[in-house]
Structures are given as structure tokens and as C-alpha cells.
Design a protein around this nucleic acid. Sequence first.
DNA 1: TTTCTATTTCTATTAATATGTAATTATACA
DNA 2: TGTATAATTACATATTAATAGAAATAGAAA
Lengths: 204, 204
Amino acid sequence: MPEETNITNSTPLSTDEMKALVVLGRALSDLTRIRILGLLAVRSMYGQELAQALDVAPPTISHHMEPLVSAGLVKIRRENNYRYYELDSEGIERLAESTQQVAKTLFTPEPLPPKSEERARVVATFIRDGRLVTIPAQYKKRRYIMEEIARSFEWGRLYDEKEVNAIMRTFHDDVASLRREMIDQRIMMRENGRYWLVRPHTQG
Amino acid sequence: MPEETNITNSTPLSTDEMKALVVLGRALSDLTRIRILGLLAVRSMYGQELAQALDVAPPTISHHMEPLVSAGLVKIRRENNYRYYELDSEGIERLAESTQQVAKTLFTPEPLPPKSEERARVVATFIRDGRLVTIPAQYKKRRYIMEEIARSFEWGRLYDEKEVNAIMRTFHDDVASLRREMIDQRIMMRENGRYWLVRPHTQG
DNA sequence: TTTCTATTTCTATTAATATGTAATTATACA
DNA sequence: TGTATAATTACATATTAATAGAAATAGAAA
């Protein structure tokens, strides 16, 4: 079983970004609210109109407005006795942008750290005469080793599993663990039995 | 009070699109699930790792995976006894695209219907010698009238409220109702007291 | 001011959700 | 084949959310 005790669980999303996502998700997580958005897309409406159109009681509309307004999707325009609810175009644009940003963030691999004394020492310790002595238990060291092994692959090329195994076996016999580690660390990707590097090597 | 009885409540979102949005919203509506996404963005993890990292019991992870997988954000890779959860890059791209699409849809005004006999008849009935006799109660007719009045505005120009009132008063004295109707029907937009047409006139 | 109406708040009820413990299933491994 | 471990399911509980009726609030109109 994998040894993971020393791994720090970092995340590319800040706490604030995560909370903002939850607020957005909550706003979208109910069909009545989505239907409200759909209706407001045609024209702004006031509460009783919405209640009648959706066949719910007026207090229900009021309650649903809270998450929609919190998420910045709807704004309220007061006119006489009425409150006209209308889509907040800026908010919805922000929503579209932010989800794209999050999607991008989630898939931006962490940058490779520069070559360092430490890295060289770790590599020298674990790789002797081109053979991996043992797979390091500590994440950071394992990371160095995996990046070193990745150098034996060519940027932009697709490899099938046999080729991957052949290359990895020059380092270590447990190629299954090495393969998994490459995927886990997002150094390589796999799809339909084909493997490839996620990004080019950074330093020669 | 506005007369709305004859208005059909159409929406630019199909039922399927709405349901898909709800599924997505549900997936994002819980902080634990967002944190799972954040962790998986760094590397794929199996259940007990996630449980330990988030300080929850393993069944909780199992439960959270259902909405994440349903929404297409996470996929499961089985390896020995473990189940490695990993981000579904295609799913997340689809998510980003679809929210953008929805945002766009929500703000695409319904196309102006072509000039028709009926439209001409309605306009002739309600506008006599350049004066609006009365504001039609029926939505469709009101729509025709508003589009007719919109022709007196210039595409691409900003108007302040005084100018809007001056132009509208040539049609009818209740300029407040006309202004609101323009906004409601998304023929005009307003921001900081400035008004403008949402789109150009289609037919001369 | 009084009245009327739209909206919100209060309160209650029901449904859904998040979470955990215990039991079950599934997969290696000895 | 039995044992060990990971994951899921079953079950239970506590919390949150959705909804509506009743009461309170706010604004317009008479």
C-alpha cells in the first residue's frame, strides 16, 4: 500500500475561491431557482408574477431570491410597491469567467521547481548507475525522482503501455507503481492506454 | 398594477439544460466536495487518503463522490483494492463551456420577429397620428408597440433620462411606464441613469 | 389617515443532505 | 482458503433546505 504520511495536501484553490464556488453552487442547486433565472432572462418580473408563473407561494420566491442575490446572479429594482427582479448581467459574466478560471486553475500543473543542490543530492542518492534503488516514501523526494525519470520520455510523443514499461524498467522493476506515480503527480497523462508528458522538460 | 394575464412565460433554457445546471450546482454546493476537487487537482487520490486529508470518515467520501461523478467532474480509476479518484478534465472543460453558454443564452435577447401584417395592424390601431392611444394590456401587442417606439432611438447612442422622456412623451404621457416596459422587455438597457438600445433595428 | 397590496418575516412542517457507525462486498496476498 | 484492507451499502441521526400559511412591514393610493 502507498506510503503517504509525509505528503502535504496543498490545493490550487484558495479558501475564498472555494467558498465563492459553494455560494454559486448553492444558487444553482435548485430547479425552482434555475427556472426563475430562465424567466428573468426573458424580462424582469416582480414577485407575484414569478409566484404565479412557477405555481408557488410568494414567500417561496422571497426565500429563493436570497441565494440568487448572494451569488450575484439577480438584482432587485424597486418600483412603487413592486420589486422587480432582474438578471445581474455583470454577475453572470463574472460567473462565466470565474468558472472558466477555476477550470483552468484546476488543470494547471504546479510549476516544476528549479534544479537545486537538494534535488541533485536526492537523485544521486536514489538512482545509482541508472537504477532506482527504492521508491522514496517521502513525497518531495518521490517528486524529484519522478521528474528525473520523466526525462527519459520525449515531449509531445504518445507512448503505449509497453513502451512506457520498457523505459521505466531500466530504472526499476515495479513499473506499475512508477506508472501510477507519474499519473498521480500529473507528470504524465493517460488515455485509452496511451501515455504522454503533461509538459516539456524545463531544464536541460 | 401591470396587466400580465396574457403573457406566455417562455424561457431560453430547455428543461434538460435546466436539469443539467441543477446537477452541476448540486455538485458544487458543498464545501467538502469543493475541497475534494482542490485536492484532486494536485494529484489523484484514493478514498482513505481523501478521508484523512479532509478529516472525515471514508463513507463520507463515498457519498460525496456520487454528485461529483454525476456532474462529470470526477472519474474513478480502479487499481487493485484502491479506487483512485481523479478530475475528469473533459467534464470540467465541458462545465466551463456550458456555464459560458448558459450565460450567453441568458443574455441573448429573443430575435425580433419580422415585420408582419399583424404587427402593422396593431401599430396602426394603437398609434394614431404619432400618439399612443393606450398601452396595450396584451403582451404581444405591447411588444410590437415598444419595438415601434424603439425606432425613435438611435442604435449605439447613450441617452440620459431627460432625453428618453422627451422622445417618449411624443408618444404618450406616461413615460415612466414606457421606460419600465422598455427595460422589462430588454429592448433597452439602463445603467447609472443612462439608457441605450440593446440591439439595432432590424428592418427599416 | 385609512386602506389596499406586494413583500418580507415568523413559524411550522416536510423533505433532502451530510455525516458517522456497523455490516457487507470486493480485491489482493499469505 | 483464510485474512487483511479498501470501498461501498445499510442504517441512523442531526442539520439544513424548501415550502407555505399567518402575521408584520412598507409603500401607494384614495
